[in-house]
Design a protein around this nucleic acid. Structure first.
Length: 492
RNA sequence: CGGGAGGUAGUUCAGCCCGGUAGAAUACCUGGUUUGGGACCAGGGGGUCGCAGGUUCGAAUCCUGUCCUCCCGACCA
């Protein structure tokens, strides 16, 4: 049928690619490293974006938009940040093409249109934003400044994977300015909570909140907080980050404010972001060999109704009944589709909607109507139930909530079962190789050891969990004393 | 960026070694029978063989270059 996908056990990477392509989330493009997000995938992103956007606004943020291009001189102003990104920046050097005098119909870069100063295509917007904030902030009365932007960014990756790592991707980046260090730290933590709330309660993906080690920290940040999720193959995925930037950017861009006593000081900053990468995480956290499994709260379609009939007369009767139901579903705010296309038979439609991860399918046939029932199938458990047609919409509304919870619980169970405490090196490697997932182990706190562990095991420290239990132990590599366990994993 | 594989109909692929003007399945269109887990019969349309050069009487096939994709690795604040 051309619709089968590679099984997870056979080839996890191929399964992931097949799934994305066949469920119509995205497609490859003619541009190296860049993908096309197809309407179904974009509808999913829109739902995610809408929920997050409301959360940002409910916490006092407003949206704005800053330029795609950053003059090189601005980009390099915050040294650490610039260095961190330098290797993966796309750079605009010319502003004009012209007809190739040698070959008709071909274009070449006009050598006379070289830019005085190169423009960096933003890999993130701190530079252009802080350069702008400088002119917006004079007094403590201008603070806090709480701005978010929805944008695309470009990071020239050597190896790309659909949604997880592409040269261009969509995200949101929050950039805030505060009068005090405490307020900025609180903002950083607050937004981490917003992310955790969103990913757990809307995407049904459990996360571990933590703080990054200096090695893994955002270049230019004092502290990077993160939420880490676990995929079905046991690899970790950084799902969101929130950075306390201290006064690094304020100093680099000279952003000062007068406090109540008319004393000048640099402002305190944060930045935080999540991207379309979350979609990759969503796919890998929940889906199976039959296709996507989408959590109801953000699924583009929550319910699909498939009619089963013989002949036009039956078709007409079912259509009438379904149209009543459609109105009731819509009145309840449920995203529903009636798949009455005549060119596919029911079995084909069942498989198709399973592939696309629609949480609930309702099949209605003449036999059902005469018994006053419908068949309800849930995508997450594959369970099929015969349900009384009266009050079906309320039944489904509750079922959607149950599926949402069930999906989270299943993912959480898997995640919890894949956090393994380990106290020596052999066990550490063994767990990574055989069981995978997070490994909770002691580390002596030095960057050197962290690097060495990464080199030997390919596992990185995903985070030091917030509110981590303090416990004396010995570093799994060096045997040096350690006061707490950290979470290691191989990661995307 | 290194190693490997690949690009031929909308899709999955065969044909390439050994050069002779492109084929299957599926999808699509028409008509009919069907419809409770990826229907069947009959007929039909569809491909500058990734792109650009070269060799040749003749190139999907041989040679060179280039673009794109996948897998593994390096890299990934």
């Amino acid at each position: 049928m051309g619709k089968e996908i590679t099984s997870r056990s056979q080839d996890y990477s191929q399964w992931y690619n097949d799934l994305i392509l066949k469920s119509q989330l995205a497609d490859y493009s003619a541009v190296r490293g860049c993908m096309v997000i197809k309407p179904y995938g974009f509808a999913l992103w829109e739902n995610m974006r809408d929920v997050l956007d409301k959360m940002f606004k409910d916490t006092g943020h407003v949206n704005a938009y800053f330029p795609l291009f950053v003059p090189k001189s601005l980009f390099e102003a915050e040294e650490k940040n610039a260095e961190g990104f330098a290797k993966e920046c796309a750079v605009v050097t010319h502003y004009r093409l012209k007809t190739d005098p040698e070959k008709k119909g071909k274009l070449i870069v006009d050598p006379e249109a070289k830019l005085e100063e190169e423009l960096v295509v933003r890999p993130t917007s701190e530079a252009i934003i802080w350069n702008t904030y400088k002119t917006w902030i004079q007094s403590y009365r201008d603070l806090p400044l709480l701005i978010n932007q929805w944008a695309n960014v470009v990071r020239w990756e050597m190896r790309t994977r659909l949604f997880l790592r592409t040269a261009e991707f969509l995200w949101q980046e929050g950039h805030t300015a505060h009068a005090t260090k405490e307020e900025a730290i609180n903002e950083t933590k607050k937004m981490l909570e917003v992310y955790a709330d969103f990913v757990e309660n809307y995407m049904a993906v459990p996360v571990i909140k933590g703080i990054k080690t200096p090695n893994e920290r955002f270049a230019g940040a004092e502290d990077t907080y993160c939420i880490e999720a676990l995929m079905q193959d046991g690899k970790a995925l950084q799902a969101g980050t929130s950075h306390f930037l201290g006064q690094n950017f304020a100093k680099a861009f000279d952003v000062k404010f007068s406090d109540k006593t008319n004393k000048l000081d640099y402002v305190w900053a944060t930045s935080w972001g999540v991207s379309t990468r979350l979609i990759g995480g969503l796919v890998m956290a929940h889906s199976d060999d039959d296709g996507l499994i989408l959590p109801p709260r953000i699924a583009p379609l929550q319910v699909v109704i498939v009619p089963i009939y013989k002949g036009d007369e039956e078709k007409g009767i079912i259509h009438n009944k379904v149209h009543e139901l459609l109105k009731q579903f819509k009145d309840l705010g449920i995203r529903v589709k009636y798949d009455d296309s005549d060119n596919a038979r029911p079995g084909w439609k069942f498989a198709e909607h399973e592939m696309k991860g629609v949480p609930v399918r309702i099949a209605i046939g003449t036999r059902d109507l005469s018994n006053n029932v419908v068949e309800v199938a849930r995508r997450d458990t594959k369970q099929k139930l015969t349900v009384d047609i009266n009050g079906i919409v309320f039944y489904v509304k509750e079922l959607l909530e149950e599926i949402q919870l069930q999906m989270f619980n299943a993912a959480k169970k898997y995640r919890d079962e894949h956090i393994t405490k380990v106290d020596n090196w052999d066990e550490f490697i063994n767990v990574l190789d055989t069981k995978a997932g997070f490994v909770s182990a002691h580390w002596d706190g030095t960057s050197e050891t962290e690097e060495k562990i990464k080199e030997l095991s390919k596992a990185t420290i995903r985070c030091i969990p917030l509110n981590n239990v303090q416990e004396n132990g010995k570093c799994i590599l060096t045997g040096n004393p350690s006061k707490e366990r950290v979470l290691f994993a191989r990661a995307y």
